[in-house]
Structure formats: structure tokens, C-alpha cells
Design a protein around this nucleic acid. Structure first.
Length: 601
RNA sequence: GCCCUGAUAGUGUAGUGGCCUAUCAUGAAGCCCUGUCGAGGCUUCGACCCGGAUUCGAAUUCCGGUCAGGGCGCCA
């Protein structure tokens, strides 16, 4: 018999029905006579009963009993039975099928399971095994409700996004996975060509150039759930392969792209949560974000800004400040309000914060506590009453507030301030985990200087349309980021559609004429054939979904993720390939392990 | 490349120089039990990441590795 119901759908209304259920044996409880089995599938759990003294007509007690002996944990079984109400007082209110049970009339083991390496029950708070074990046996991990929910949610998100985009005339187009290696940016995963020995494709870091060429090809509205690859080190929110919701539009400006994403998210919100998402999103300039929050993706669920006080304290004879100032540095501070901190930050905690600041590259941290009518600290003596009063005014100091002051080189102070702000918010629980605060980071520069090499780099990428003359010092770029809760969810821009401007940007990035030709010649040529004004954005699907589900890492919303070192613990990739395969590709490995030491000697 | 944290039965853990023949739970195997629901009871099985050092004595201290995770760099 084929299954008639899933393990999550039988209710009181089904009482008396003959059913067939198929699923996994999650738990069984043998009372020496009556026996209960929790049968699980992706939809839920139904309790099965075998009672030797309560056998339905036509059922064979001995054959059922025999089959049940083969029901090991996580075995796949098929059971026929009759739905009945549970004995008075034995309902299970925690389970949506908890009012009914299925009295077994026939049982069969479809596939016996080995004893699982970790416990799969997750009705209550179960103890999760380490992630290594979960990834090694991902197919078992996926049976857990949490994982099933994550993948369903992810699907729902993508499905709703598709619905919105299709309704608005977007066409999903697949761009190639075997593409050209690009010189700038992240490292490529490369794929050897057998037909052209010694040459390689690269897996796409993003469909950037192809989606732009789709616009040149008059596609007008494009989207793709695009897999992207970057051979860089992983993080909790970064995997070697990841998914972007990639969008490109013709005849639009930045506002049109932002409106589209806001519309999309409103639609998704409605579909997933049944709620209205407030738009338009707040906008914050790159400069404000850095100055106030020390981050290009500040968490805006709480305020706690940096308040710059360089001008107020510049004359105070406090040696540390004077040293910093004479080196061209700045002084800034946080006012940790009494309402935020309560009495959570005592002397010991301040010492820990000072350590934190030191680890983040500053010499230390000065602090003051606001008393009834003054500021209390071992360094107040260096500040005149006038300076203290100005400081109190500027930082809006009330009794019980704690001032944390940072001094040092501008960039260092802002970055460390941003880290400290984040830490304070976490320690003091300044935000609600269920709140999602979107914002657009706007007014970005076109270029940034790499502090290590002193080289000029593109702030976003080299295809961003400049918003100012290219001759001035701080060229602006028509790019923007979607940020939420301290994460960057995606970045978009209006693109360059004039080949001469594009060529000029490549030159400004220090790419030689020859390189421009070999690496981007085809693209410059394409721009030359009537490229329409266009722009687009890419949203990180893994990241967004993991934040919405409050998961610590994007691995928890990816069915088969890699570990931190980029390995799949499930199939053991990456692996060596046989020598004859390499030979066919005319590839010779010079990895240390592959070199025969004797040969070298 | 660097920094931080961790590693004890299949799984999750306790254990800060001798009370360790290593705790507890879960699991597995077996037995008992007729209304449980992560059932319960009894019995059994099963572990200190590797190498070196210190010490009379190391799971515990030190050094070096390996593995895992978080972060910096990197991610145009």
C-alpha cells in the first residue's frame, strides 16, 4: 500500500480511517506488552500503537510483532493502521497530531538503519553534536526540525522573491558557470580545459559582466538565483560558494533599483510573515556611518554613536591626548547612558573593555563616570571646569552615565570605536533579536586607497558609474549597500555605459592598456554597441536568510555547506584526481605532497 | 600569513598534580515491565587528539604539532 498521509497531518477528524504511513522510527517505547512508536517524516510525528490484546480484525498479531523487532531507530518503515482517539488523559498537547494515534494492522521494514551517530530527537531542547559530526552526517542532520525549517524558509524566501520579480517583468536568465578569470578581486576557482590544454575557465565570482551584457542585449529586466564562487578564506557568513539574488535593470537610476528591492522585500515580508515591512528604508551616507558608528554596515537597531570631542579637549594638558593630537589623531567617545548600562559596567568590566580596545589596536581607553554635578575619573584633574562642562554638554551627560574616550589615528579610532560599539551592544543587550532594521548606505566614494600597497582600488567594483568629475580628489560613485542589523546584505550601483568612461576608470585603477585590452576588451567593445544606461544589485541570499532565522552561521541555512577550510566533510572534496586525468589535461601538480623527494635528491 | 578559543566513550559532558581502575547523561547490546510520549527499572559495553618535556606521579603543568570553530588579513 502507498502512504495515504504524512506523519504530520492526521487529526481527530481522521478518526476511524484506515491509513498507511511511511517514515522513520524516531523513538519507540516498549512496555512489555503495548508498544508505542513515534513515526517521523519531514512533516511531523505520529504515534503508532501495537497492543497484543487489542488486534483489529484481519490483522496478524505475530507478523506485526515480528516486524516491530526489526524497527531499529531511524529505520524506514511502512505501517497500515486505523486512526483512533487516544486513551482519555494521554493526549500530547505538544504535538499537533497528539490527540490521535494509529493502531497498527500491518507493519513492514522498508530499510533498516544503522544506529545513528547522534540523537535526532528534537521535540525538546536536544543537545546538538559538534558541527563536524553534523556535516559529516549531513543527511541525518537534515532530518532535524531546525534544518527542515531552515531549508523550507529559504525556499519560501526565494519563491516569494521570484513571484515579485516575475510580476514585475523580470526574466530569469542563466549565465555561464565556465567563464573568464578576472585579474582583480577575489581569487578564482579555476577549471582546466581539456580541449585547450594549458588554458582555464574560472567559476564566476558573480555574473557581473554577463548581466551587464544582457542589458546591452536589450533584456531590460534580468534576475537570477546565481551561485557564485570565491576562493577566499571562510567566515561564519562566508562560504566558498554562495547564492546571490542577482538583478539588473536598464534605463534606471539608483532610486529605481532601491525601490525595486524595497518592493521585493515588502512582498517577501507579506508572504513569509504576513506583515507590512516599513519602507522606504532609512538612508545613511558612508561618511556618516563611519564617523558616527565606525562601520560601513552599522547596526541601526540601537543608537550609541561616537561623539567627536577633539576640539573640546584639545587644550587639556593630558599627555595622552596631546600626543595623539600632535600626531594628527582624533579623540572621540561614547556616552554609555545609565539607562543602557544600569550597573552592568563596574571597574572590572571597564578593564575588560580597555583590554578589548588594546587588542583592536589602540593604546588604551580613558573613562569618566558622571556624578551628580561633575565627572569622576583619575584624569579629571587635567581638564578645566570649562572643558568638563563643554564635554558634558556635547555628550549629553547625565548623572550615572559612563563616558568611554578613545584617542588615536583617525582611521584606527573609528574602526575600534565601531568594534567597541558592537561589543557594548552585545554585552548590554541593546537590541532585540527579532527586529530587522534595513538601511541603505549611500554616497559612497568611487575609490579607496589600499593602506598596505598605497594602490588605488575600486570601492565597490570598477563598473560603478562615477557621480562626479574624475579629475577631483574624492571621486564619488553611484553605488550603495543594503545593510541590516550590522550585516551587508548586498550592494548595487548604477553602471558605466560609456566605454570611454569605463576605459578611464580602468586606467585610474592602474591597469595597463595591454591588460585592459586582454582582460576587458570584449566588454569595452560590448559597451560600444549602444549600451543602455543600466544598473543593478545582488543580495546575499544565505546571509539574509540566516539573519532572518537568527542562525549563527550561513552554514545553517545551506543544505550541504563546506567547513571553514573549504572542505565538504560529506564527500571528502576537494580531493586529488588520478594521474591519468591530470595527464589528459596536461597538468602537473607541484604540491609538496605530490613531489617525489627522491627525484629532487 | 597572523591572533583567540577549544579538543575526555558513538553523542553531549564532569574532572585545575596523587582521591581517576575517569563523572554523569544519552546511546548500543541484553533482560523486566500493558498507556507511554526524549517512557521507566536492572545488567553489560564503551573515552583522556598526537609527540616530547617537567615530576616519584600528568586527563590536569610546559613545549611542539594536528584538527575544529571565531576573528584579523583577504573577500575589486
Amino acid at each position: 500500500m502507498r502512504r495515504t498521509h504524512t506523519c504530520g497531518e492526521i487529526r481527530s477528524a481522521d478518526i476511524g480511517k484506515k491509513v498507511c504511513l511511511q517514515g522513520w522510527v524516531r523513538f519507540s517505547r516498549d512496555h512489555g506488552g503495548v508498544e508505542f512508536i513515534d513515526l517521523a517524516d519531514a512533516y511531523g510525528i505520529t504515534q503508532l500503537v501495537f497492543d497484543p490484546e487489542d488486534i483489529s480484525s484481519g490483522a496478524d498479531k505475530n507478523s506485526i510483532s515480528l516486524a516491530l523487532k526489526g524497527f531499529t531507530r531511524e529505520s524506514v518503515v511502512s505501517v497500515d493502521g486505523v486512526v483512533r482517539k487516544r486513551v482519555e488523559g494521554t493526549d500530547d498537547p505538544k504535538n499537533k497530531t497528539g490527540e490521535v494515534e494509529v493502531l497498527i494492522t500491518k507493519a513492514e521494514v522498508l530499510n533498516r538503519s544503522n544506529s545513528p551517530p547522534f540523537e535526532l530527537g528534537d521535540q525538546k531542547e536536544s543537545v546538538l553534536p559538534g558541527e563536524e559530526t553534523r556535516l559529516r552526517y549531513r543527511y541525518l542532520d537534515l532530518r532535524r526540525t531546525e534544518m527542515i525549517e531552515a531549508l523550507r524558509f529559504r525556499h519560501k524566501f526565494i519563491s516569494a522573491a521570484r513571484g515579485y520579480l516575475e510580476k514585475n517583468g523580470f526574466v530569469e536568465v542563466e549565465t555561464p558557470m565556465l567563464t573568464k578569470s578576472t585579474p582583480e578581486g577575489a581569487r578564482d576557482y579555476i577549471v582546466p580545459s581539456r580541449v585547450h590544454p594549458g588554458t582555464f575557465y574560472a567559476l564566476p565570482q558573480s555574473p557581473q559582466l554577463f548581466k551587464q551584457m544582457l542589458m546591452i542585449g536589450s533584456m531590460d529586466r534580468y534576475y537570477q538565483i546565481a551561485r557564485c564562487f570565491r576562493d577566499e578564506d571562510s567566515r561564519a557568513d562566508r562560504q566558498p560558494e554562495f547564492t546571490q539574488l542577482d538583478i539588473e535593470m536598464s534605463f534606471v537610476d539608483m532610486k529605481d533599483i532601491q525601490d525595486t528591492i524595497e518592493g521585493l522585500l515588502v512582498h517577501v515580508w507579506k508572504a513569509i510573515y504576513g506583515k507590512k515591512l516599513e519602507t522606504p528604508f532609512m538612508r545613511i551616507s558612508f561618511e556618516d556611518a563611519m564617523n558616527k558608528y565606525g562601520s560601513d554596515k552599522p547596526d541601526l537597531r540601537y543608537d550609541l554613536p561616537m561623539i567627536h570631542i577633539t576640539n573640546i579637549v584639545k587644550d587639556a594638558p593630558y599627555e595622552i591626548f596631546q600626543k595623539v593630537l600632535s600626531a594628527g589623531g582624533i579623540i572621540t567617545g561614547f556616552n554609555v547612558k545609565k539607562e543602557m548600562a544600569g550597573d552592568k559596567i563596574g571597574r572590572n568590566e571597564i578593564d575588560r573593555l580597555i583590554d578589548f580596545v588594546k587588542k583592536n589596536g589602540l593604546g588604551g581607553m580613558t573613562w569618566m563616570r558622571a556624578t551628580k554635578d561633575s565627572l569622576d575619573s583619575n584624569i579629571v584633574k587635567y581638564f578645566t571646569p570649562d572643558v568638563l562642562s563643554k564635554l558634558k554638554k556635547e555628550m549629553d551627560v547625565k548623572e550615572g552615565d559612563l563616558l568611554l574616550l578613545l584617542a588615536g589615528p583617525r582611521k584606527r579610532v573609528l574602526e575600534t570605536g565601531g568594534q567597541l560599539r558592537k561589543k557594548l551592544a552585545e554585552d548590554l543587550e541593546l537590541f532585540d533579536k527579532g527586529t530587522f532594521k534595513f538601511a541603505w548606505l549611500i554616497d559612497c566614494p568611487m575609490f579607496e586607497i589600499d593602506p598596505a600597497s598605497g594602490k588605488k582600488d575600486a570601492f565597490h567594483h570598477p563598473f560603478v558609474h562615477p557621480t562626479t568629475s574624475l579629475d577631483i580628489a574624492n571621486v564619488g560613485g553611484a553605488s550603495f549597500d543594503l545593510i541590516m542589523n550590522g550585516s551587508e546584505l548586498g550592494s548595487g550601483s548604477q553602471r558605466i555605459h560609456d566605454p570611454e568612461v569605463q576605459r578611464q576608470i580602468f586606467r585610474m585603477l592602474g591597469i595597463s592598456e595591454e591588460k585592459i585590452g586582454t582582460d576587458f576588451g570584449f566588454f569595452l567593445e560590448a559597451l560600444g554597441y549602444g549600451a543602455p544606461p543600466h544598473g543593478g544589485i545582488a543580495l546575499g541570499v544565505d546571509r539574509l536568510v540566516s539573519i532572518l532565522l537568527n542562525r549563527e552561521t550561513i552554514r545553517d541555512v545551506i543544505a550541504f555547506p563546506k567547513n571553514k577550510k573549504g572542505q565538504s566533510l560529506l564527500d571528502g572534496s576537494p580531493q586529488k584526481v588520478d594521474d591519468d586525468k591530470l595527464e589528459e589535461l596536461q597538468i602537473l601538480s607541484i604540491a609538496i605532497d605530490d613531489i617525489d623527494i627522491e627525484d629532487i635528491k
